[in-house]
Simulated scan of single mutants.
Amino acid sequence: MKKLVIVNGTMGVGKSTVVSKLYKQIENSVWLDGDWCWQMNPWHVTEENKAMVMNNIHFILNQYLDNSGFDYIFFTWVVHKESIFEEILSGLKDNSYKLLKITLICSEEELLKRMVKDKRNEKDMENSVNRLACYGTMNTHKLDTTGLEMDEIINELLRIVVDDEWKKPV
């Protein structure tokens, strides 16, 4: 059965960095980053643009789900509200797939360290830190990446996604 893997988390937590390496280690996989659908200049968040972006996300994800060559579809995006998950899923065809929702989280200190390294601006860092709390109550698997190396994060995601194992707390 196909797996649709939605990896969310606050800006700067490492979604794109991790999944850009992860999907290359899994045969028959594809990756869509929701931010790609917002690549516009100037960048304007309007109702028209929000609708267009969501339509594009629905179209691309449906194409990947319909394609027999893909077993794993990865989608990364901030998704800081359950209603956004619902909106994404409501536009997908009634395909047979297993849905995995995985939230990458980290400490505020780690997040700021990563964002400084990426040369993010102060406003983005403040917004990202302010959204950290949104992810704690979401109906997702949480993966705390604080202090973990890239290989450790990828190995944990491989266990979750490919092996269907979620590491239980000891």
Rank of each mutant, 00 (worst) to 15 (best):
N95Y: 13
N95K: 15
N95L: 12
S96V: 09
Y97N: 04
Y97G: 06
K98D: 15
K98Q: 15
L99D: 06
L100I: 09
L100C: 07
L100G: 05
K101E: 12
K101L: 15
K101D: 12
K101W: 00
I102H: 05
I102G: 09
T103D: 08
T103S: 15
T103C: 15
L104K: 04
I105R: 09
I105A: 11
C106V: 06
C106E: 04
S107M: 00
S107H: 03
E108D: 09
E108M: 05
E109G: 02
E109I: 07
E110G: 01
L112F: 03
L112H: 01
R114L: 13
M115I: 06
V116G: 02
K117R: 12
D118H: 11
D118Q: 11
D118W: 14
D118I: 07
K119Q: 15
N121Q: 09
E122G: 01
E122M: 12
K123S: 10
K123D: 07
K123G: 01
D124A: 15
M125I: 11
M125K: 15
M125P: 01
M125F: 03
E126G: 09
S128N: 08
S128R: 14
N130S: 13
N130L: 14
N130P: 00
R131S: 11
R131G: 02
L132I: 02
L132K: 07
A133P: 00
A133Q: 11
C134R: 04
G136W: 08
T137F: 05
M138Q: 14
M138I: 12
M138G: 04
M138Y: 04
M138K: 07
T140K: 05
T140M: 05
H141M: 14
H141F: 11
H141P: 01
K142N: 04
K142V: 03
K142C: 04
L143I: 14
D144E: 04
T145F: 01
T145A: 04
T146R: 08
T146G: 10
T146W: 00
G147P: 05
G147N: 04
G147A: 06
L148I: 07
L148R: 08
L148H: 08
E149C: 05
E149S: 14
M150I: 13
D151S: 12
D151P: 00
I153V: 14
I153T: 08
I154P: 03
I154R: 00
I154N: 00
I154A: 05
I154T: 07
